[in-house]
Design a protein around this nucleic acid. Structure first.
Lengths: 241, 241
DNA sequence: TCCGGCAACTTGTTTAAACAATTTTAAGAC
DNA sequence: GTCTTAAAATTGTTTAAACAAGTTGCCGGA
């Protein structure tokens, strides 16, 4: 439930765009009109519009108006984007999610791991490896490392359900920023052992560092996807220097 | 040259972070301090900080301060992110760029192309295919389609240099929003013909729709990268509903 | 020593206003 | 009719102020 006014307005306009009430390529009402509609100040309207522009819904044009540039995405395969859990993505893509936990152990960060993940050497982390199923097919191999000091008490039951639910709701630690890197890497023995790969010799890999509300990196994650079930979306707005 | 005050402040703080004057994991001066430093209002400071947060440089903490979470990226291979041209990316990655134009023809959009690109059927577009070299190695296969009505007068010379320079500087059409999709696809005959692939049977593919300042999609682009030279960066900030 | 509570500081949200920059529209001159 | 010019409308930037909400630290009381 959005408590801030600009979030309510954002949601309302977004919905009007998605349902077609505000048509593709047409202009939405001017900022001053929206001030009257939502009974708020122009700044609040502008903030909502700003977020819509970032999501690729609209584009502002100086002296002209705000144009709708949203078009629905054809829901092929398994699309991603933004910060969301596997479970959230699966539901959004109308797939039945499944999870098998391969490994859940505590380890100490050595030099090699420190260089690859960014965790300080000597720190205690919880290593979690999982196979992800969509409609029964094993398609994704997940590896997570959580700082034990910030994410204690992980169990196989939690890992099978949703670790993010546990972190945000049970531990009460908000997740804020996520820095990700997408690469394509060669298939490994582990990939071949656990996934249905066909004759693919590459995997789509998302590596990410996740920061909590204190700005501390508490998770390193690597997600290996079978190529034909991978699709990542991104909207970029060009900055003027 | 940033003309707006918040852009100047953004650049200044960003530089202080990159040079280490504002240290990793430390807090930058409070908003009220920055108001004094830059002699402006708090809103202007907040806007600069907001943009820094979006770029993954800082993270605001309610009631505490603004923490630096920037760490330099190890410059492996060919990294991407944001909206930038091949030439800009190459220079940023300290590689020598090269381009060979394979094809430059005008075609009319048929039903199949319309479905894949989003261009209206019957529209005239300019089809451009290029091989991209980094330090002499053929690594990327680019395909672009430009709306002829908005991007007229394309020549092989322009295609060898930089089409974006031509569009933004010569035609004076600002590029604003770019919606991209990253997938991994099987190698095609064209890939094998023009690129050094080794035994890879997959390619990293970036498909994008590019919109100008009028909110009109004027370009569809597909960029096929050899896996080991592909790396895409993204920073996501979790929204509160 | 421990704990409560208050004060000070910090970021988050909202309003109001003024001016700049750009585009569109309308009025008017020819 | 056509062109020029002015007015109106629209988004972009900046300032100022007030209050809300969260965290820190200090001080005093038990």
């Amino acid at each position: 439930m959005p408590r801030a006014k600009y979030q309510t307005i954002y949601q309302d306009i977004k919905q009007k765009i998605e349902t077609g009430e505000y048509e593709f390529q047409k202009l939405i009402p001017s900022e001053n009109s929206l001030v009257g509609i939502y009974n708020c100040s122009r700044n609040t309207i502008r903030r909502a519009i700003f977020e819509l522009a970032e999501g690729g819904y609209v584009q502002s044009m100086h002296g002209v108006g705000v144009r709708v540039i949203y078009q629905p995405v054809s829901p092929t395969a398994f699309s991603m984007g933004g910060i969301e859990s596997f479970r959230e993505s699966a539901i959004r893509n109308h797939k039945v999610p499944g999870t098998k936990v391969l490994n859940l152990t505590n380890i100490t960060v050595d030099a090699r791991i420190a260089a690859r993940t960014g965790f300080p050497e000597g720190e205690e982390v919880c290593l979690l490896q999982r196979v992800r199923y969509l409609d029964g097919q094993p398609l994704i191999l997940d590896m997570n490392m959580f700082l034990t000091s910030l994410v204690p008490g992980l169990t196989v039951e939690i890992a099978e359900r949703s670790v993010y639910d546990y972190i945000e709701n049970d531990l009460g630690m908000p997740i804020v920023t996520s820095k990700r890197r997408i690469t394509v890497e060669r298939v490994t023995e582990l990939d071949e052992k656990w996934l249905d790969l066909g004759d693919y010799n590459c995997m789509a890999v998302i590596s990410g560092k996740v920061y909590n509300a204190d700005g501390v990196m508490f998770e390193f994650t690597q997600s290996r996807h079978r190529p034909d079930y991978f699709s990542f979306y991104d909207t970029a707005v060009r900055k003027k220097l």
